[in-house]
Amino acid sequence: MNIFRLAGDMTHLFSVLVLLLKIYATKSCSGISLKTQELYALVFLTRYLDLFTDFISVYNSVMKVVFISSSVAIVWCMRYHPLTRRTYDKDLDTFRHYILVGVSIILALLFHDRFTFREVFWAFSIYLEAVAILPQLVLLQRSGNVDNLTGQYVFFLGAYRAFYILNWIYRYFTENHYSRWISWLAGFVQTALYADFFYYYFVSWKNNAKLQLPA
């Protein structure tokens, strides 16, 4: 464990807490893409298959349980909770996210470390996570004004993978033959997708103005 990875995990955890706070405090999930939440639940469920087979550390297992349970809970809230589901921007959240799932499956079958059940599912989860934010970014552009907590949620979600890139660079130089080219490429694409959001987020922060994404 290095400081970059810890910072990344804490930022990721914080983004989940901010999202839970937004839904709980505002009793609303307006501005949140259910499709992105479903994709993240799928990412965690397919990546953490080893939760019950390989024990790496208490930290590792606890974080996996937290990410799986929070993502599933948010999807449940947005789909079935009588109060919350009514505030979901159903007619704005129209990204065809099953295409992202399909492309990730094809990529995972083509590019993986080893052709085993675990490795293909792991590669699938890495590719899917790289694009999982797209429905959320599209929804933000459509919904015009973005409430602070939603903006912070997306910001921290994007920042965490940037810390992971620093972690991979650090591990590349400190551990011999460490190569995670699948994670590197997908992580780079994932972080790049946030580029314009980061720009508008910085501008809104500098001008102390409401976050506005161009339509």
Binding site: R5, H12, N60, K64, R114, S179, W181
Partner: peptide, 10 residues
């Protein structure tokens, strides 16, 4: 290669 390393990252 990366395949023989456990996936110790989240």
């Amino acid at each position: 290669s990366s395949s023989d390393q456990p996936k110790d990252e989240l």
